[in-house]
Nucleic acid binder design. Structure first.
Length: 283
DNA sequence: AAAAAAACCAACCGCATGCAA
DNA sequence: TTTGCATGCGGTTGGTTTTTT
């Protein structure tokens, strides 16, 4: 464990607050070209006047290609409730069970929706009930308090350790006797059996966007415009969603605006699919 | 229609952790 | 073993949007 803490950056010399579309584009193009081995050095190399931490957060929570946007489904909410009961405020752990969702997003959903939804209830904290219906769940305030207490005290709840992969545990509040190994099996089987979201092997969920991006063919007009598979369609959807998120919209003006604001060093990435962009946007 | 209150969520802060020298 | 650096993580903040009065 390290001693002392170096300041992550000179806060007087970095930009803070909301990210502009141009900054987003710079970050995306840089990471595409060079990866993100060194977050601290990245901003300078990418031509960003930002703290490395800020870049990392922006990438992880917003720009990463596999980030799922939009409202949480009922299944996702139930999963969060279940996992929070078992793990407490281990948002990154919970996020690891929800492909495409970030810890920050889950934390926000919990604090703004789920916590309040559970609060009025005062009866027992039965996970099965929680799973059966988030609206009519019998999750209790006590449950929440317990979860928060557990999280605060860093003690496992119901014998559940913080790492579901290493020693997960039962969701059953009545089961306090399971050994860690057994708990792990119970948790695994519960997740796999009850929640379709969690049946997907995590290792297969990592969308290899870089392979897609690195492949020149993926930017050829034919492939780019007319996806030949659902995967291509997903990739294209990501680009289009990203354009919308960046405020580029579907207009040539919008795209040119951002394009012209990107440093030359970043342009290679954009130039690569440029003919496709031109066709798509009728430039 | 305007003001106030509530809700939402992106981003920041600082401690914890892992790792290399 | 100690130290320093980089990153991960969870709590919190504050600006913006939406809803209510």
């Amino acid at each position: 464990m390290g001693k002392g803490r170096a300041p992550c950056c000179d806060k007087t010399k970095v930009k803070r607050g909301p990210w502009s579309p141009e900054e987003d584009l710079k970050l995306i193009t840089f990471i595409h070209k060079h990866g993100h081995d060194n977050w601290r050095a990245l901003p300078k190399l990418a031509g960003l006047v930002r703290c490395g931490k800020s870049c990392r957060l922006r990438w992880i929570n917003y720009l990463r290609p596999d980030v799922k946007r939009g409202n949480f489904s009922k299944e996702e909410e139930d999963t969060i409730i279940n996992l929070h009961l078992a793990l407490g405020n281990k948002w990154s752990k919970i996020a690891s069970y929800l492909p495409g969702r970030t810890d920050n997003e889950i934390k926000n959903v919990w604090n703004t929706h789920l916590k309040k939804r559970l609060k009025p209830k005062t009866s027992q904290s039965n996970v099965a009930d929680v799973s059966s219906s988030s609206e009519s769940s019998s999750s209790s305030e006590k449950m929440e308090q317990d979860s928060e207490k557990q999280a605060a005290s860093k003690e496992p709840i119901n014998g559940v350790t913080e790492d579901p992969k290493e020693s997960p545990a039962s969701f059953s509040s009545s089961d306090h006797s399971s050994k860690p190994e057994e708990e792990g099996q119970i948790l695994e089987s519960l997740l796999k059996d009850d929640d379709p979201l969690l049946q997907i092997p995590m290792e297969t969920l990592d969308l290899d966007i870089w392979n897609i991006l690195e492949s020149p063919e993926s930017f050829q007009s034919s492939d780019f415009q007319v996806p030949s598979s659902s995967e291509d369609a997903d990739n294209n959807k990501w680009f289009r969603d990203l354009e919308n998120e960046l405020g580029l919209g579907t207009t040539a003006e919008g795209f040119n605006l951002a394009r012209n604001n990107v440093d030359d060093v970043d342009m290679a990435f954009l130039e690569s699919p440029w003919s496709s962009w031109q066709e798509i946007y009728n430039l």
